[in-house]
């Protein structure tokens, strides 16, 4: 969200278009990600996961307030959006920005799949997630791997912020999107790269159908209702792997 606001400011002041802003957003997110990793995450290594999660939730609240303080609570118009062109694919009509979002999603997903399967850093990252101590014994600098993971996540999130603000509007309420991404990840499986994307589609469709057929207000909670069910039946998500176990 912070990234999107910064992108908005840069866009307003420099007159860059949407595509010009993409690399800018990635660069800004990288730097912010590194800063946050260094100042806040690094001292937390070795603490229980839940403390780190709580810390990031706190950070999200802080950033939200910071944004209201600096840019105000009123939604802003994003001048650099790709425009209101409507693409027609048969019966389906999409805004250009939505099509770009889908395209970028596929590209990023493919990128991550290749990264995790074939590059040495990607394999090392999976190894570090699997067993941190042994990763250290293999000569992997686990701190650097964490930093890399954090930076990748931050730049993906920054890009998502830019896309959301061009499709919807730029306002402090954007932070709710992060919360809505969470059920998508659980549904798809925490460790499945394409899983979260598929989970996102399913949740998105169900949110809108639920609101249309059942009633207003269901949109925000239906995702969580679904993960409740999923966690009961398939705790590892739709596409996640079961625990590896010898039989």
């Amino acid at each position: 969200m912070l990234n999107a606001y910064i992108a908005h400011t840069i866009g307003v002041h420099t007159g860059l278009g949407f595509w010009g802003l993409v690399p800018v957003v990635i660069a800004v997110s990288l730097l912010l990600g590194l800063l946050i990793e260094f100042v806040l995450i690094r001292p937390m290594i070795g603490e229980p996961t839940i403390s780190i999660v709580m810390m990031t939730v706190g950070l999200a609240v802080f950033i939200r307030s910071l944004v209201v303080l600096v840019w105000g609570a009123a939604p802003l118009e994003f001048s650099a959006s790709p425009g209101d062109i409507v693409l027609s694919l048969g019966p389906v009509r999409l805004y250009l920005a939505q099509a770009i979002a889908i395209g970028l999603l596929l590209a990023i997903m493919a990128g991550f799949a290749v990264f995790y399967r074939y590059t040495r850093s990607g394999i090392a990252m999976r190894a570090a997630a699997n067993d941190e101590t042994v990763a250290l014994l293999m000569g992997i600098d686990v701190r650097r791997i964490y930093a890399l993971a954090w930076v990748l996540a931050a730049s993906t999130a920054g890009l998502a912020g830019l896309l959301i603000s061009t499709i919807y509007e730029l306002g402090p309420d954007m932070s709710a999107f992060g919360l809505r991404g969470f059920p998508a990840t659980i549904l798809g499986g925490l460790d499945a790269v394409g899983g979260s994307a598929a989970g996102g589609f399913i949740i998105g469709i169900l949110e809108n159908l639920g609101e249309g057929y059942v009633g207003r207000g269901l949109k925000e909670i239906i995702g969580f209702v679904i993960i409740l069910v999923v966690l009961m039946i398939r705790p590892f998500g739709l596409f996640g792997t079961r625990n590896v176990e010898r039989v």
């Binding site: 394999i123 999976r126 190894a127 699997n130 067993d131 101590t133 042994v134 990763a135 792997t241 590896v244």
Partner: peptide
């Protein structure tokens, strides 16, 4: 203590 979620070659 293998990385059990990785293949033999990835290990």
């Amino acid at each position: 203590r293998l990385f059990i979620e990785l293949t033999v070659e990835e290990n």
